[in-house]
């Protein structure tokens, strides 16, 4: 097997596979920093995936589809946030409810609108525009890494930089981190911690909406439960990335690579398919163990 041939599609695929992890991770980071573990990411991605492709099909416009898909996801996130923050429900219960509701809602709507609970195909849906700069495309590895992806991938990268600026360079991010650290200090400063948590949840809605849109618009179809655990892995990505935007970029690359490898290996390697499919999850478990070991080891210093 020629290693050059091997690496090119893998890196290219890695970049598109990692983007949903990246976007959901960045969104989840915002609530995480505000002191809330957002376990609703999975449901938010699913809502984004379903509505963006459905709206795109109805309006015939990708742009409108993505936009309305994001808005719907943010609305869903708002309801989750309102129940949690204003009605003071337990965030784990509401997060689980949001995930279950997302699964149920998409199935019901799918059946009600299209008469099937199965795969929805949308023929004639334009595919996502791809950034091509042929002159630069030829550069080995870097060409694959940087070019020839659909525009949502670049949104993902932009989100890292934007999140970094937002978190570390603006008063908003400063207060958001303060909220997670000690909400009473925020309150004493005359601010409302709930506002910053809600903002974090809405940003999760935005980024998860985009993450979902990538999944369906790439395919031109909606597959039931298409999020398939990405929201959960995104939670791991947040911790593995040390709760920083660039860390999350690195961590999602690791997971993208794992999934991309397992896709590739299915065709080439003589390993049981079940094991290969489990590969991303094995990585997840391994990563969690490593992270907690590192945390345990460094605990003596941090206190």
């Amino acid at each position: 097997m020629n290693s050059g041939e091997f690496s090119i599609p893998i890196i290219h695929n890695t970049v598109s596979i990692m983007t949903p992890f990246l976007l959901a991770g960045i969104g989840g980071l915002m609530t995480e920093l505000a002191g809330m573990l957002n376990i609703a990411l999975e449901g938010l991605i699913l809502i984004g995936a379903f509505f963006s492709v459905v709206f795109a099909a109805y309006t015939g416009s990708l742009m409108l589809g993505i936009l309305l898909g994001i808005l719907t996801t943010m609305l869903f996130a708002y309801i989750f946030g309102a129940v949690t923050l204003y009605l003071k429900a337990n965030v784990f219960i509401t997060g689980l409810a949001a995930n279950l509701l997302a699964g149920g809602l998409t199935t019901v709507l799918s059946f009600y609108l299209f008469g099937t609970k199965g795969v929805l195909r949308f023929e004639g849906l334009p595919s996502l525009p791809v950034l091509r700069i042929p002159a630069l495309h030829g550069i080995p590895v870097i060409g694959d890494l940087l070019f020839g992806h659909n525009i949502l991938v670049y949104f993902g990268w932009a989100s890292v930089l934007l999140a970094w600026i937002l978190i570390y360079k603006t008063p908003f991010g400063f207060r958001l981190r303060g909220t997670g650290s000690n909400p009473e200090a925020i309150e004493a400063a005359g601010l409302k911690p709930g506002n910053y948590q809600m903002a974090g949840i809405l940003i999760s809605g935005l980024t998860c909406g985009l993450a979902g849109a990538i999944l369906t618009l790439n395919l031109g179809a909606y597959v039931p439960n298409i999020s398939s655990g990405r929201g959960w892995i995104a939670l791991v990505v947040i911790y593995l990335g040390g709760r920083t935007p660039f860390g999350i970029l690195g961590a999602s690359f690791v997971f993208g690579l794992a999934e991309s490898l397992s896709n590739y290996a299915q065709g080439y390697l003589d390993i049981p398919a079940d094991f290969i499919l489990a590969f991303p999850y094995i990585i997840t478990v391994t990563a969690m163990v490593i992270v907690s070991i590192i945390k345990y080891k460094t605990q003596g210093d941090s206190k």
Partner: peptide
């Protein structure tokens, strides 16, 4: 009501 990870200056200006 202070944020342990922040500096003195950051805690003082928080909110303003």
């Amino acid at each position: 009501k202070l944020i342990q990870e922040f500096t003195v200056a950051e805690n003082v200006v928080l909110g303003m």
